[in-house]
Amino acid sequence: MDADGGNPDWQRGVLTTCALAVLARGSAHGYAVAQQLQSAGIGPVKGGALYPVLNRLEQDGVLTSAWQEGAGGPGRKVFTLTGAGHARLEALRRGWQPFAAAVADLLAPDTSPAAAAAGGRRADGSTP
């Protein structure tokens, strides 16, 4: 488990959903998306993980992008959620609660008598 925001596998799994959620709050460039994800507690997100996701969403028509002139430095590519993006995020929001509840159920310690009995025995059948 990563101290900065969770298991890397979880982060990879929810990165698309979370990036959409961040962009639903307003258009942003890549680094701003990464910063908002970090301050939300999702963990530090490297550009190498974020840009493939943003580009794929753009190819899917979920995001659009436009270049903004940088002050003295290189320009920034600003991403904006499209109508299709809002629809996809809405679908993800609807599906999230049942999914999270199912995972939470699965992760909750099993307190049934059968589990207690199984937990009291080692794999070789002996008791601790």
Binding site: H29, G30, Y31, A34, G47, Y51, W67, G70, G73, K77
Partner: peptide
């Protein structure tokens, strides 16, 4: 050009 510039911008920002 697009991909390289977006990476360059992100790197400078970071």
């Amino acid at each position: 050009r697009d991909r390289v510039e977006e990476a360059r911008g992100y790197w400078r920002d970071s």
